[in-house]
Nucleic acid binder design. Structure first.
Lengths: 211, 211
DNA sequence: TCGGCGATTGACTGATCAGTCAATCCAACC
DNA sequence: GGTTGGATTGACTGATCAGTCAATCGCCGA
C-alpha cells in the first residue's frame, strides 16, 4: 500500500518538478542553479539529488512526461475513423495549442529548452521528437492515398512544415511576438490548418474552409 | 590607406570569426571555451579579447552579419515589380536555403544558437528576427490586397507559418532528420512554397503549381 | 519505547571558464 | 637605429556551480 510516507515522498518529487518548471521558464535551464529549484520548491539543495540523478534528469523528466502525451494524442487521432485528414490535423494542432493554454510555463520549457534546443538537450530526445513528425506524416500519407491530399509534396515534408508552423506560433506567444488570449488560441488552430491545408493562394473554391 | 598592418589585423579578426563558426557549429556556443576558438584560429587566447569585448560579441557579430543580408534580400524581393507573391516567397525560400547550402556551419550556428535560442541569445536579437517576419508579412499583405492571396489568414500569421516551415526544414538538415543534397535543396524550396501557397488539399485546379 | 531506515539537510569540494593584465613583439616612421 | 603604439601572448584571478556526503530527523513497525 502506498503509505503516507511514500505518498509524501511522491508529493515532494512532484513539488520539485513543478518548481523546476517555474524556474526553467523564468531563468532558462542554463540560467538557473539547482539551488534555485530547491529554493522555489522550499526544500534543501540535496533533496533534488535524492530524487534525481542530475539537473539534466529533471528536465528530461519534464519533457518526457509531456511528450509521451503528445505522441499518444497524435497516435489516437491518426487511428480515428471517419475524420478527414484536415480535421485530424486540426485535432493535433488543438492538442498542442491547448497544452500551451493549460500550462504555458511547461510548454515554454519544453519548446525552448528541448525541442528548439536540439543542440544541447534535444539531441538526446531527437528520436522522440522525430516520432511526432512521423505520426503527423502518417496522417498526411493516409490522406494522400485516399486522394484527399495532394501528392505534390511528400508526407514527411508536409509534416515538418505543419509542425514547424505550430511551433513557430507557440514561440511567438512565448516571446510575446503574438497576442495571447483564448480567441487567439482558437484562431491559431484554424489558421495553421487553413494555411497548410487550404494554402494561401486565392482559390475559386475552398471546401471546408472552417472560416 | 589600409597599411599591411591594418590589413593583417582585419584578416586576423576574420580568422577568429571563421574559427568561431567552426567551433560553435561543432560544440555549440555554450559547449566551447574561448580558448577553443583561439586554438582553432591559431592565435593566443587574449587576442580574441583584443578584437571582441566578449564571447557573446563574437556570436552577435556572426549573427548580425548574416541576418542583415537576409533582411536586405527580403526587402529587395518585396520591392520587386512584376513578380507574383508566390514567386517572391520562392525567392525568399531560395535565399535562405542557398545560404545554408553555401555555408551550412554558419547557418547552423545562427539557427541553433540565435534564432532557435530566443531564450538566451535570440532575446537580444528578437527585434531583428521580427523584422524578417515583417518583411515576409509585407509580401503576403500585398498579395492579399491585389487578391492573389486569400485573406482567410492574417498576413502576420502566414509569415510566421512560412518562416517556421523553412526553419524546421533547415533544422531537419542540421540534425540529419532530412537527407542532404542539391536536389533536396531545390525540392525543399518548391515544397515550402507549394505547401504554404497551394496547400495540401487536393484541389481541382492548382495554378502555377511549379511541379 | 526503541531501532531502523528512508527523507532531509546544507556545508563543502573540485572543476570549469570568462575575462584581465603585464609583458613582449614588431612593423612603420622618423 | 631609435621610438612609438598597436598586435600578440598566455599565466592568472575570481566567481560560479554541479554534485557529494556525513549528519540529522522523524515515521513506522516490533
Amino acid at each position: 500500500m502506498a503509505t503516507a510516507r511514500a505518498q509524501a515522498a511522491a508529493d515532494k518529487r512532484r513539488a520539485i518538478l513543478d518548481a523546476a518548471v517555474r524556474v526553467f521558464a523564468r531563468q532558462g535551464f542554463h540560467g538557473c542553479r539547482v539551488s534555485d529549484i530547491a529554493d522555489e520548491a522550499g526544500v534543501a539543495y540535496g533533496l533534488v539529488y535524492h530524487y534525481f540523478d542530475s539537473k539534466d534528469e529533471v528536465l528530461d523528466t519534464l519533457f518526457l512526461e509531456r511528450w509521451e502525451l503528445l505522441l499518444a494524442a497524435i497516435d489516437a487521432v491518426d487511428r480515428r475513423e471517419g475524420l478527414s485528414a484536415r480535421d485530424k490535423l486540426y485535432e493535433v494542432a488543438s492538442f498542442i495549442v491547448d497544452s500551451y493554454r493549460h500550462d504555458p510555463e511547461l510548454m515554454k520549457v519544453i519548446i525552448v529548452e528541448v525541442t528548439r534546443a536540439a543542440n544541447s538537450f534535444g539531441r538526446t530526445h531527437l528520436a522522440k521528437i522525430r516520432e511526432a513528425y512521423e505520426g503527423i506524416a502518417s496522417i498526411v500519407e493516409q490522406a494522400q492515398r485516399d486522394g484527399t491530399f495532394t501528392t505534390a509534396v511528400t508526407a514527411q515534408f508536409a509534416a515538418l512544415a505543419f509542425y514547424g508552423a505550430i511551433e513557430q506560433v507557440l514561440t511567438g506567444w512565448i516571446f510575446d511576438l503574438l497576442p495571447h488570449g483564448d480567441g487567439q488560441y482558437e484562431q491559431a488552430k484554424r489558421f495553421v490548418v487553413e494555411t497548410v491545408c487550404g494554402g494561401l493562394d486565392a482559390g475559386s473554391e475552398r471546401p471546408d474552409a472552417r472560416l
